[in-house]
Design a protein around this nucleic acid. Sequence first.
DNA 1: AACCTGTGTGAAACCGTTCTCATATACATC
DNA 2: GATGTATATGAGAACGGTTTCACACAGGTT
Lengths: 325, 325
Amino acid sequence: MDINTIATMAGVSRATVSRYLNDGYVSEEKAERIAEVIRQTGYVPSRQAQTLRTGKTDVVGVIIPKINSASIARTVAGLSEVLNGAGYQILLANTSNVAKTEVDYLRLFSRTGSVDGIILSATMLTHKHIAALESLTVPYVILGQRLEGHRCVFYDDYHAERDITLLALRSGERPAFIGVTDEEAAAGHASHQGFLADCQERGIEPLAEEQADFSIESGYLACERLLEDHPDVDTIVCATDRIAAGAVVCLREYGHRIPEDVQVTGLGDSDLAKVVSPTLTTVNHHYKSSGAEAARMLLDGLGKVQDSAQQVCMTYELYARNSTR
Amino acid sequence: MDINTIATMAGVSRATVSRYLNDGYVSEEKAERIAEVIRQTGYVPSRQAQTLRTGKTDVVGVIIPKINSASIARTVAGLSEVLNGAGYQILLANTSNVAKTEVDYLRLFSRTGSVDGIILSATMLTHKHIAALESLTVPYVILGQRLEGHRCVFYDDYHAERDITLLALRSGERPAFIGVTDEEAAAGHASHQGFLADCQERGIEPLAEEQADFSIESGYLACERLLEDHPDVDTIVCATDRIAAGAVVCLREYGHRIPEDVQVTGLGDSDLAKVVSPTLTTVNHHYKSSGAEAARMLLDGLGKVQDSAQQVCMTYELYARNSTR
DNA sequence: AACCTGTGTGAAACCGTTCTCATATACATC
DNA sequence: GATGTATATGAGAACGGTTTCACACAGGTT
């Protein structure tokens, strides 16, 4: 069922059918004939053929490290809402946090012409990433990282962690930090530095630092190590809510009272934060909005909307709940 | 940079370049020349043109009600792993749980020829869904619903809820149920029926039934209503972990001890279940595996693998934790 | 009458591939 | 020497649309 069939059935040329479908000049009479034939046949033009001729795919490539993560899923929800609203579909590329895969997808999407634009949510940006980005032939937005001179939306984990550390240090004297690898720019490096900055400002030497990954279990284990080496810890600042949730479970199991004996803080306000007992003092990132914002910036790059922002630093909110004094 | 340029530069016809790229007959000598030119130019064939010619997109459409949900995100992770491994990309369609949008995407994807196959994760299947499915021109798998005569992967929420209700009723005498709308086949209707069946078998009249949606907050509110009308409730069976988490928070706030005064059960083993206090008795659904399984079934439909299963009922595991006696 | 101008139309080129088919060469077999 | 077979190649036709271009016809202006 192609455009030629329709044209023949309606007794017109295929150019006229094409014009009918694309707001061109078509006489009342032929338009009706074409409309009728299309109604009968249920004809829909081939996306592939249109794309080949016009160069427009109406697809945006979204490269993410892991879909199976609350913050990223919320981000994608925001992306999806705005992009779908503008008539774009999302081609999802899951990289399992492998830097090489990210770069590969960047090249693949761009060179094969399979997308009109790209949103990259990477946890770290190597020089290879940057090189790949700069050689892209389609507009793109970086999500979750700051990169000067490129469209990006990022979180201010540094100040978020500073604010929350400040809060905790009002009554905490022997703080420890459970973070993730410093190679991660946001949740890793930035929040770590935020913690250290506040400690230094208050003239407090951190008791210890442990490293976890993004799982609840690793938060539990890191907390266990911490308690073993430093039973006198009175404040545990965690780089993510999941780590903090693991820490809370661990502390409870070992009989420590929260926040009386030990304070715990998280970052990211996942659902967990509201549900753990005691509820978690944390910082809320507007993940869904960040996705929506990134989408809007990309639409700008695609010439669909006017959005002058080149860089957007997302705001955050401090939630002082019951895991701190 | 197209195949003609490459052909000219290498001094061969474009057919030969095409053969070089697709394992056809090419002499050693010309192959080397072509390889060199491609290396220099960084040429990558246009996906669009290949697709138009071959009819293969190497893309699978994945229609989901909401990406921003732990269970669905895990499912998509499973899909992604298997599909990417087989060389397929994922075109994501978020329907915000609007039945019409689901049907629209089904038609759109199929008719425009933008995907080779479709995975549909719908919460309910109307006759319109079924009609749309049956008129598809590409293979498809239904995820999360059972539909006789169609490839599908589903969860046995009925027996899962029966098992967990049975467990709770060992010591509970005045049970209530917090569910979602019965229009939802799995989490709604099936788990509701499972609960009722066990009550009936034990000759127990359920104390009350409340309805929530999929949010933690709605679980909290439903629990609040329940406590107001039936302060003597001693067992609350919830259709999802998020509802249960909300109920736990509510009960705690109202000073009820769990499980001594009131037992609570969930379903779905989200991260929440391990973190709420007390930890939640629930059933673990293998969401990620279900995605992987659905992907394999689709690959079968695409002729890529042999997977004779037409219908897969996912197994589950009962986790008796501390929210039941 | 000659000349625009706006509207409507179809033929044909084009987008970048794959694929069929005709053909060519080299070598072995009868 | 004729025939068969495996390897290698290019010309040209698809694939299904959009877009350019030339042209026709209506009506209004010089």
